[in-house]
Write a protein that binds this DNA or RNA. Structure first.
Length: 200
DNA sequence: ATACCGATGGACT
DNA sequence: GTCCATCGGTATA
């Protein structure tokens, strides 16, 4: 349960809440930066209309890493300017990934602040955390058990996990596939979510 | 070939 | 609260 290898045995729906409390450590560019995962979202297979796996052609050049083995990265580019980072779930061949939406900074905050152009928050929001950690398309498919970008196991008490609908999607937005640490101030607040306090 | 649009964030009223 | 930059991937012709 705490080994990264078990990511191959869980689908994205199961993995998303379990990733809360894990640490993501980046040594990209030679500078170590780390954060605790406080918010995730699950994106499932072709039956999930909000998932990149739900494309007519099945596996495509963009989404192919979603079909890779659990424990690797799926990194994609959106809105012409932002990168988003996912942890792939499930065995090779079955698509699914967990979008990491927010980190609680644990170390290297000066590096994060510099990469963020002096703007806060440092790592609350999927594109902000990629900028703070130096993650870009070069890490699409990267094995997250090894440097320069790796996961270290962690977790939170079951009672601290809150659930809601996913943010920023226009389809299947009500499915309870967003997970966050209740009350954590580094959880990103969505467009229409007042604050990270309630349950879904 | 080409039109459409997004798993966002920052600037602005 | 609203607006929109910016561009690769996907869908369509």
């Amino acid at each position: 349960m705490t080994e990264i290898g078990t990511f191959r045995e869980s689908d994205a729906r199961d993995l998303a809440p379990r990733l809360l409390g894990w640490t993501l450590i980046s040594r990209i560019g030679g500078e170590e930066v780390a954060g605790r995962i406080v918010e995730t979202e699950a994106y499932l297979d072709a039956s999930d209309p909000a998932s990149h796996a739900a494309t007519r052609g099945g596996m495509t050049s963009r989404n192919r890493r979603m079909f890779g083995p659990g424990g690797t990265a799926y990194v994609y580019f959106v809105y012409g300017r932002h990168w988003c980072f996912n942890v792939v779930a499930g065995p090779e061949g079955s698509p699914g990934a967990v979008l990491v939406r927010a980190l609680e900074p644990l170390g290297g905050t000066e590096v994060m602040l510099r990469r963020r152009g002096g703007r806060e928050p440092l790592a609350s929001g999927p594109a902000r955390l990629c900028e703070a950690l130096g993650i870009d398309g070069a890490f699409d498919g990267h094995d997250l058990s090894r440097p320069p970008l790796r996961l270290e196991c962690g977790g939170v008490a079951a009672g601290e996990v809150a659930v809601s609908g996913r943010i920023g999607v226009s389809r299947a937005e009500r499915l309870p596939l967003r997970f966050y640490i209740r009350g954590n101030p580094h959880v990103s607040t969505g467009p229409h979510e007042p604050a990270a306090s309630g349950v879904a």
